[in-house]
Design a protein around this nucleic acid. Structure first.
Lengths: 159, 159
DNA sequence: CAATGCATTCAATAGGTATTGAACGCATTG
DNA sequence: CAATGCGTTCAATACCTATTGAATGCATTG
């Protein structure tokens, strides 16, 4: 029988995977969210039954992305990580970065389009622009969610 | 030497792949965007050098998602597809659907959390809520982009 | 009604990458 | 200074799924 906690962790893994990222990264994030406090790599390995290598690699990846935070409480020399208070906004910000990079990459390519091929050029340029604009909006939205905080009470519809 | 068109198509493939979807789907979308007009499955297979099976499967997937449109011009019995005018908004809507599904799935799980474990319960519930709220936000933004259209002129910063 | 052209389906393969175990380096400790 | 405990790195593996070729079905055509 799987506990609700484990179900949540499992789901987080699957969802992350669906976004093209390693399943274990999602599981770690889920684990840190349910725990609420910082947890060491060793704790992750035994709670999630994963190798030390995976725990290390994926936790660090999450930290790079800003979704979790690496902490080093004095008194222990183990690395520990805790879920960012605003883990979700951080994920949105990561999406924003991806979108912006996509837009810029396309912009570079569109510069090489022949001048006479205006139709394609315009369509592609429009696509790139929407990528960039969407990145802006994701960031705004992330900021808005950050203020509320992940464990705030009920939500009112925006506006 | 690769043409700018092919570079764009290639990028679209890579970007889609980074989002956890098949590379060929992205290539097809890119191809349809540069072409602007409807293209048959056969045209895709030779332009992208992919198998008939891949073309069929991935084009249909894109159509299901609403990113491309299946058209059947009279006079031919070939299936043809064209990029939606608002392909990008449709992609955003697809993201919104994923987010909403995620939020709802987590909500179902959180219902089984023991009542005494309020800390974890609240954190997870907050996470689910943010998923749902973000889905709403994505849809609003998609609608806004739709109005502008993908080949509209310059953009003014929001608000 | 045989033959062609098309899309789809399905089992098999190819390909990529997440995951692991083992080796390594570094600090700490007794 | 040997031994322990930790995180990281790296090559090898396991795993998954995108992709394919072949089979199927359906409509159209002569």
């Amino acid at each position: 029988m799987t506990t609700p906690r484990d179900q949540f962790i499992e789901q987080m893994g699957l969802m992350m995977q669906a976004e093209g990222q390693p399943r274990i990264a999602g599981q770690i994030l889920g684990y840190l969210i349910v725990e609420g406090e910082a947890r060491t790599l060793n704790q992750m390995t035994e709670a999630l039954k994963i190798s030390k290598a995976s725990a290390s690699t994926n936790a660090r990846m999450l930290a790079d992305r800003g979704t979790v935070q690496r902490v080093s409480p004095v008194g222990t020399r183990q690395d520990a990580y805790k879920a960012e208070f605003d883990a979700m906004p951080q994920m949105l910000r990561a999406m924003a970065r991806r979108f912006r990079a996509n837009g810029e990459r396309i912009d570079q390519i569109v510069a090489d389009f022949p001048d006479d091929d205006t139709g394609a050029r315009d369509r592609v340029a429009g696509f790139a622009r929407t990528y960039r604009d969407s990145a802006d909006f994701f960031e705004e939205w992330a900021a808005r969610v950050s203020q509320t905080g992940c464990d705030g009470p009920s939500n009112e519809k925006n506006e």
